[in-house]
């Protein structure tokens, strides 16, 4: 979860910088042109049924028996070791190179002092070559830093952030429930600070995690402060592969008389390149 959080923080900062006119209480306000309205269904949408792995299911007992036989004949034991990421081995080499470069710079400094003491005039050519050498060492450091940066900041996994905004007439709800399609149920209480932020036009983040890049149905249940019952809605969303997708649930109409206006949603994909270039 830490990797997407880091990207999320970067995204929030980028968006803030990219949209200076955004509301002060809106940490991830997106440019309006990017936000796509998402339909909120009041009944769970039906999905077509597909059959998969027909042979495996038809022969499950046979295959299970074969796997058990393999276990018996091979006597496999789970091992604890994992393959080392070659990048981590490379980091050790890079560190040694950096230390060697540091020694070289120190040695170069000593030599320079001695030479300056002995002959301050006749060694200008040597001084120039030493400076060139330092330049090349600095270039080496720069390359190593670029490698580290590309390894740790360049890859975005498929991730979803769910935001809530809007101040219903009866006040912000105390909690909401999100059910993801893999049956994960998230009961999200809204803290007093979050509810106050919603009341002042701000946005609260209620979910942030990795998701599968496929069309999926997300269920929301929000208890209403004014009026009876709770409001339930289903949103069909396809998070973009290797991108950060934002889904924003607007609660401002939660207490409206028209049931279809109670929950609204919008979505957008965070464009890191656009945010960077806007800076």
């Amino acid at each position: 979860m830490s990797a997407p959080r880091a990207v999320f923080v970067a995204g929030v900062l980028s968006l803030l910088l990219a949209a200076p006119g955004a509301h002060a209480g809106s940490p991830v306000a997106a440019p309006d042109a990017q936000v796509v309205d998402v339909r909120v269904d009041r009944v769970r949408p039906e999905k077509p049924k597909y059959v998969t792995l027909r042979f495996l299911r038809e022969n499950r007992d046979f295959l299970r028996a074969r796997l058990d036989l393999l276990r018996l004949t091979r006597n496999e034991q789970p091992g604890g070791g994992d393959a080392l990421d070659p990048r981590f081995l490379a980091y050790g080499q890079m560190l040694r190179e950096a230390l060697a470069a540091q020694d070289s710079v120190a040695g170069t400094g000593d030599a320079f002092a001695r030479r300056a003491l002995l002959d301050r005039i006749a060694r200008l050519g040597d001084l120039e070559s030493e400076l060139d050498r330092m330049d090349s060492l600095l270039a080496g450091q720069r390359t190593r830093l670029t490698t580290l940066e590309s390894d740790f900041t360049g890859h975005q996994e498929t991730a979803l952030v769910i935001l809530v905004r809007g101040n219903p007439a009866g006040g912000a709800p105390a909690a909401l429930t999100i059910v993801l399609e893999d049956s994960t149920v998230l009961n999200v209480p809204l803290t007093p600070a979050q509810r106050q932020a919603l009341g002042e036009g701000g946005i609260a983040e209620v979910f942030h995690g990795f998701v599968e890049p496929r069309e999926q149905v997300i269920e929301f249940t929000v208890a209403r402060n004014a009026g009876p019952g709770r409001e339930q809605g289903w949103v069909t969303l396809q998070p973009a592969r290797d991108r950060l997708t934002f889904l924003q649930l607007d609660l401002s109409g939660l207490d409206a008389a028209d049931p279809s206006a109670r929950l609204r949603a919008g979505a957008w994909v965070f464009d890191a390149d656009a945010a960077t270039s806007a800076r």
Binding site: Y50, T52, E212
Partner: peptide, 13 residues
């Protein structure tokens, strides 16, 4: 595109 994703109701190690 992923048309369907579901857990297998069988231990298939």
């Amino acid at each position: 595109k992923i048309l369907l994703a579901e857990n297998l109701d069988l231990k298939f190690d």
